[in-house]
């Protein structure tokens, strides 16, 4: 076990965990932030997507020891009132079905729009292909990203 000071959503949080513990479980269990989801544990489904220094990363394979001094943003900190353009677009298009993968989808989409405010279809395909949705809401996800791009 070791003590880590993490910068999560603009706040410093202290945790005492095994250095190998993935950020996913630190967030969910130690910091009580369950918005980041467990889907596969091998960075193949995207449910656990967070932003690390502004980039979308899979938190299930990211050891806590690797993220000190880096800015972590989770779905809980993406916007103050749930009104990030991507979140608004998700609601406008009523994207979710079961909803489980959607926080990961939203985090991937928000990171994409940050680097490419007007993404092409190919940009969206490339950025979102790591996020699985078993309900099959891909079409609405794509449309919502385009709506969010226009809102900016």
């Amino acid at each position: 076990m070791a003590i880590y000071n993490l910068k999560v959503n603009g706040q410093t949080k202290q945790v005492d965990v095994d250095p190998a513990t993935p950020v996913l479980w630190v967030l969910r269990e130690h910091l009580n932030m369950p918005g980041t989801k467990y889907g596969c544990g091998v960075a193949m489904c995207g449910a656990c997507t967070i932003h690390l220094n502004g980039n979308a990363v899979r938190s299930c394979q990211l050891p806590v020891a690797a993220v000190t001094n880096k800015e972590i943003t989770t779905i809980e900190g993406l916007s103050a009132n749930g009104d990030h353009p991507v979140q608004k677009a998700w609601l406008e298009l009523d994207v979710a079905q079961c909803g489980y993968c959607q926080t990961g989808q939203i985090m991937s989409a928000a990171a994409l729009l940050k680097s490419k405010p007007n993404p092409t279809d190919a940009d969206i395909d490339a950025a979102m292909t790591g996020n699985i949705c078993r309900c099959g809401t891909y079409l609405r996800i794509k449309d919502a990203i385009k709506v969010a791009a226009k809102q900016k």
Partner: peptide
């Protein structure tokens, strides 16, 4: 619209795995 839409999009604990 989905009555849980806002909670889903903001990562509120809705699912079994989130229950504590």
């Amino acid at each position: 619209k989905n009555v849980d839409g806002q909670k889903i999009a903001t990562g509120k604990p809705l699912f079994g795995l989130d229950y504590k």
